[in-house]
Design a protein around this nucleic acid. Structure first.
Lengths: 202, 202
DNA sequence: ATGCTTTACGGTTCCCGTAATAATT
DNA sequence: AATTATTACGGGAACCGTAAAGCAT
């Protein structure tokens, strides 16, 4: 079976393997930065690698992308065209990467909590259900001993064993402040997430 | 000298070599078409090649892009994210390719012209200079014999030996109509280009 | 049994880095 | 002399195709 779409003439009707990612990176780096040397430095590769990449790119495109007068690369009109599009494409890919990474990180997070035995059964189940409804991938777990004394639990929270603690100090519920502490210093969950949890607890 | 940006932990601060073009193509083809088999057919590669490509992609991304229940690949939430962006990026690259190809084709065009010996020296030089200023890549050349009789030249123009003919019929310059003929039927140069030429001749 | 996906394996190609060359300031 | 871009060349990684195995319908 023939896999390669071999065209007799050179007018390939859009060969999908063109414009490889390293070529695009090299091209943008040269165009934006300071020539081959700067591009090599920016991309952490050697200068010949850059030269080869854009050489291949130009060869596959069938046009030169740079003016090579005086040992200095300067974009020509083809390069100008490509630069616009390539930057847009790269931004798109970078955005995809960031979005996925963000979602992945959020999914891998877990929230450990603890609280007074008297408060847990009444407040937590509804809160967890509501929270998981909006954040199905955040792992919520009860950590540590329920019947420890409040002082120890606060110490454990400060040490990072929990992310969230619902307990009593001086006979008054202060989870609000503790939650805030957790948000800022302990876990990277968005404020929005915790806010929902707070609301459902209140 | 160290070229590779090796990070001990896995939190690469945007590794530019991710999302290779074949991986993106395979991914889009699977997502849009009918699974691995359809993608392989669409991209003219074997099925294992597709599997490997998206396997690598998922591995490098650190997340699965598809649900693999029941031997059928279905986009998951990560895949949804990537699909949007990847399609946009690919469209951008495809656009770049088309723009460049178009400009390249145009640049490779040439305009052959002829005209009466009496008219050529006075009208042409300025016209050519002005034209080449705006279209430096269009090859302009004088073709055929200058001192042939006008009737023969008109026949040659109709046969396509020239793209542009400036001559006299019934003692009156009619280049305007002939130019129009050329624009529509003979050469693919934009109206704009020819219009400038006409103007400079007038 | 048929169809689709995945693994195993061998070969080819592509890419990169070192070293050397050419040309410009 | 110093900087910049390009070639030559050898090693290693990536990609692909054939063949075979898993799993579902």
């Amino acid at each position: 079976m023939k896999y390669r779409k071999s065209n007799a003439n050179n007018t390939c009707d859009y060969e999908g393997t063109l414009l490889k990612i390293n070529q695009i990176n090299a091209f943008i780096a040269i165009a934006e930065g300071n020539g081959v040397a700067g591009a090599a430095q920016k991309l952490y590769v050697s200068q010949p690698a850059i030269t080869k990449s854009i050489s291949n790119l130009e060869s596959e495109l069938g046009v030169a992308l740079f003016d090579r007068s005086k040992h200095r690369l300067k974009l020509n009109k083809y390069g100008e065209i490509l630069l616009r599009r390539a930057k847009a494409a790269k931004a798109e890919l970078k955005g995809a990467l960031e979005e996925i990474t963000l979602m992945k990180d959020r999914s891998q997070q877990s929230i450990k909590f603890n609280g007074s035995p008297a408060l847990i059964p009444r407040l937590i189940p509804k809160a967890i259900n509501l929270f998981k409804l909006n954040h199905p991938d955040v792992h919520v777990e009860l950590a540590g001993l329920l019947d420890d004394n409040p002082a120890n639990k606060i110490q454990a929270l400060i040490k990072g064993e929990y992310d969230l603690l619902i307990t009593v100090i001086d006979e008054k519920v202060v989870f609000r402040n503790l939650c805030h502490f957790s948000i800022i210093n302990k876990i990277g969950v968005t404020h929005d997430s915790i806010f929902r949890l707070q609301q459902s607890i209140s």
